[in-house]
């Protein structure tokens, strides 16, 4: 790739106490690309994703968003954590969708969408509201704009959560197992929303267990095991012919 990638992780390592959960992982995501991160439970997929927007701070390595160092400034010969305000400003550029949705239960679906654009980005309320309604329409939730999260099903909550992330007009979206907490009959409605977003060119990094979905929707995949990036390749090769024997073993189990 000759142009600057939208998102680049360079030699990311992370320890939880003595346990190394990420072992010097590097990868890049081009603008408009969709990447999925696969791997068995406890392989460090979610931690890697959370390192991208500094919800977890890597112990080593760096993340660049269109060339900007995430979470740190260079200080003397090392890096210093950014102050809260600047870090918050950076995080606006990456949307995140959580396994447990994490909608704000005291706000309506519409208020969940408008809270950050009006409060953080200080954009004009009327315009934000119009955009938010359009986003709810896009995820098929416009009839529930005034409902509270507690009144919605899991699939509906996750669709609102995706719209909430989009309301900030992020440069890329991070999905942390977006369908893992859903009842089986609600998985497809959420996957359909993600599929449409990727098709519309939204840069996405998706941690998922849905291998079929990953193969269909994503351009490339990363396969993690025990914190190591074992294999990286086009998602069309997510089949029994996967190069790495461990990837193959994993796929055989889930396919």
């Amino acid at each position: 790739m000759t142009s600057v990638p939208l998102l680049a992780a360079v030699n990311i390592s992370k320890w939880f106490g003595e346990h190394q959960v990420l072992k010097s992982i590097s990868f890049e995501v081009a603008a408009g690309e969709a990447i999925c991160i696969l791997g068995p439970s406890g392989s460090g997929k979610s931690t890697l994703l959370r390192c991208l927007n500094m919800l977890e701070r890597p112990n080593e390595g760096a993340v660049f968003l269109t060339g900007d160092l995430m979470g740190y400034t260079t200080h003397r010969n090392g890096m210093r954590e950014l102050p809260d305000r600047l870090e918050a400003r950076q995080r606006q550029r990456l949307g995140m969708v959580f396994q447990q949705f994490n909608l704000f239960p005291h706000l309506t679906a519409l208020e969940n969408l408008t809270e950050a654009p009006t409060g953080v980005q200080k954009r004009e309320k009327g315009i934000v509201k119009q955009e938010a309604l359009a986003l709810l329409e896009r995820v098929g939730m416009s009839d529930k704009a005034r409902a509270f999260p507690g009144q919605l099903s899991g699939g509906q909550q996750q669709r609102v959560a995706i719209a909430r992330a989009l309301a900030m007009k992020p440069e890329a979206l991070l999905f942390d197992e977006p369908t893992s907490a859903l009842d089986p009959e609600m998985v497809s409605e959420v996957l359909q929303v993600i599929r449409d977003l990727v098709r519309d060119g939204m840069t996405s990094v998706i941690v998922t267990h849905e291998v079929g979905f990953a193969r269909e929707v994503c351009d490339r995949f990363l396969f993690l095991e025990d914190g190591e990036l074992l294999e990286e390749g086009p998602s069309s090769s997510l089949n029994q012919n996967a190069v790495h024997p461990r990837t193959r073993a994993f796929l055989e189990k889930v396919l």
Partner: peptide, 24 residues
């Protein structure tokens, strides 16, 4: 998860406290 969601939306810690955590 409430703090994390607020952080991911670019809210500062102070804003997160007053708008998200404290009301709940």
């Amino acid at each position: 998860g409430q703090r994390e969601a607020a952080a991911a939306l670019g809210m500062t810690k102070v804003r997160t406290f007053f708008r998200i955590i404290f009301p709940q």
